[in-house]
Amino acid sequence: MTFSRRKFLIILGSAVLLAVLLFCFFFQYFKFFQVIGNSMSPTLKDGEIYILQKGRSDLKRQDIIAFYSSKDELNYVKRIVGLPGETIEIKNNQVYINGQQLKESYVVRNKDIPDFGPIKISPYQVFVLGDNRAISEDSRVMGTIPIVFIKGKIIGY
């Protein structure tokens, strides 16, 4: 083997090893997640694939999460609106957290939605809503979501 061929094989082997390590790292912390339905439109589109950052740490209001529903054994994608210990109420198409109106520029307001609550969110649970409220099956129907059922956050949308 000549020196240049040997050098080429070392560089090629290093590149392949680096690609394998990056691939393993990516799928340790992230996965691809396909959205089914229009309950999160226009933010997330039906059929499109997004990146899900795995885990439940650092969750905050307005994060879009994927979670498992034991009610029908399906995965859902919704937006966190209420956090543990908060009181949530929907009246006149507006969301109120502890009596304060929540600013929501992402919501589709194509139809009136029924008033809801007030309810107090239990510890270790969150209240989720779809951005397209008129067609979304969310915490108004399925109840609050245990944090342990959350698979992760949708990123890069």
Rank of each mutant, 00 (worst) to 15 (best):
I150R: 00
D115E: 08
I97M: 03
I10N: 13
I113C: 04
I64Y: 08
A66I: 10
Q34F: 10
F127I: 00
I113Y: 06
Y96S: 03
F25V: 14
T87G: 01
G152Y: 11
D131F: 02
I51S: 03
S14F: 14
Y50I: 06
R109K: 15
P84A: 06
N132A: 06
N132M: 06
N92M: 12
L9V: 10
R140M: 02
D72L: 06
L129V: 00
T87I: 10
A19D: 05
Q94M: 11
P146A: 06
I135W: 04
V35I: 15
I154E: 02
M142H: 11
I11W: 14
K151L: 15
V16I: 15
Y106C: 00
I10M: 12
K120P: 02
F127Y: 12
D72C: 05
R5F: 13
R61D: 05
G152M: 09
G47D: 11
Y50C: 04
L21G: 03
K45R: 14
L21Y: 10
L9F: 14
R5A: 13
S14L: 15
L22N: 11
R133K: 05
A66C: 14
F32A: 05
V16E: 05
E86N: 07
L52T: 04
L74I: 07
F25W: 15
I147G: 01
S69H: 09
P118D: 08
F23H: 11
E48V: 10
I65Y: 00
P114W: 11
D138P: 02
E86G: 02
K103Y: 14
I155L: 08
C24S: 12
P146N: 11
K78D: 04
